[in-house]
């Protein structure tokens, strides 16, 4: 087999490269947010952009999320293509009116006459003791509300390709990146946060799940960090003679139901893993899809692993207890296969 040269990038560099390429391609693209300029974004998503494009196109804002997210809406309505960063998704509380009552609803309320081609980029995820106001993913909070695409890529390759798709999309896109998958020097070093990323611009479609590991005995559905945990669990399951199929959802809205249904029809068992809260969340949605479309293909009840309806605690043992991990997935999968 011919060896192709691998160009390895961290998640944050892949993301910044996507934005750079689109800014070079389209003068209407600009970035706005807190510390996105000289600092390069607290989680590195805009690294190097200020130096390249200057303060007119990479705009540091005051701590005024309502005003700058609202301004992105106003600029998008004028045909610009803003990317705004909400530093932590947890800060949505101070600006959710702009996000939900305006960004998500204006295209609909205008009968499709007003387009809002904007990206709301935001950092999600815990696991590093940042406690209840800085560790959530809130995937389902956004995905529940119609009018926004909601994506959450898990590899550097997808971060770049899906960011380019998001910028080119004429709909508002909530683009969630996982802090620990950015590959930053000051967080846990995970192999998953570094990956092959081609130099040129390319797109990865929004709304298409990815089967990241094929298997025949059980389907494990995850997103972002839980995909990597599921892959680790799958390796150990293989040693037990169990072939797990792992699906990376990548997009919550639109949701690729078909890939999930086809996989369940093949494996007859479904485990859904989420770093968001358990109740009324993504795991429940996937379970409902299975119940509606392939209930009779299931040989065992659907199982779910998610944050057990408590705020994310601070202390390490407490936090590790509530977050999903490979061990929990492994144990649950073994039980499910033996049922």
């Amino acid at each position: 087999m011919q060896q192709t040269k691998q160009r390895l990038l961290t998640g944050n560099k892949a993301l910044a490269e996507a934005i750079r390429l689109e800014m070079e391609r389209d003068p209407n693209v600009f970035v706005m947010g807190e510390d996105v300029g000289v600092y390069g974004g607290i989680f590195g998503a805009t690294e190097g952009l200020f130096q390249k494009f200057g303060p007119e196109r990479v705009i540091d804002t005051p701590i005024s999320e309502t005003a700058f997210i609202g301004a992105a809406i106003g600029a998008a309505a004028e045909g610009m293509r803003p990317i705004v960063e909400l530093m932590f998704v947890d800060f949505f509380g101070v600006c959710m009116d702009q996000i939900y009552n305006h960004m998500a609803k204006i295209p609909y309320m205008s009968g499709g006459r007003v387009k809002l081609p904007m990206v709301l980029m935001t950092a999600v995820g815990g696991g590093y003791s940042d406690a209840a106001q800085h560790s959530q993913t809130l995937y389902a909070t956004f995905a529940h509300l119609p009018g926004m695409k909601v994506v959450a890529p898990s590899t550097p390759y997808d971060l770049k390709g899906m960011m380019i798709s998001a910028i080119r999309d004429d709909n508002p896109v909530v683009f969630m990146f996982h802090k620990t998958l950015q590959g930053l020097g000051w967080m846990d070093q995970l192999d998953a946060s570094i990956g092959h990323v081609p130099e040129e611009a390319y797109t990865v479609p929004l709304g298409k799940a990815n089967i990241v590991r094929e298997g025949t005995d059980i389907t494990i559905v995850g997103i972002q960090m839980t995909v990597h945990q599921a892959l680790e669990a799958a390796k150990r399951l293989e040693q037990q003679g169990i072939q797990a199929e792992v699906i990376d959802l990548r997009s919550l809205v639109p949701l690729d139901k078909e890939t999930i249904i086809q996989s369940v029809k093949k494996t007859h068992r479904l485990l859904v893993v989420d770093e968001d809260y358990l109740s009324y969340g993504m795991t429940a949605e996937i379970a409902a899809i299975a119940a509606e479309h392939c209930l009779y293909d299931l040989e065992a009840p659907v199982k779910r692993i998610a944050v057990p309806d408590v705020p994310i605690p601070y202390s390490r043992p407490l936090e590790q207890f509530v977050l999903p991990n490979a061990d929990k997935i492994f144990r649950e999968a073994i039980q499910l296969v033996n049922e």
Binding site: F30, T66, G70, E78, H102
Partner: peptide
Amino acid sequence: GAGIPHALGAALAAKK
């Protein structure tokens, strides 16, 4: 009050 940020964004676009 929610329309003020939208006008702000239009003003920003006009200046840009």
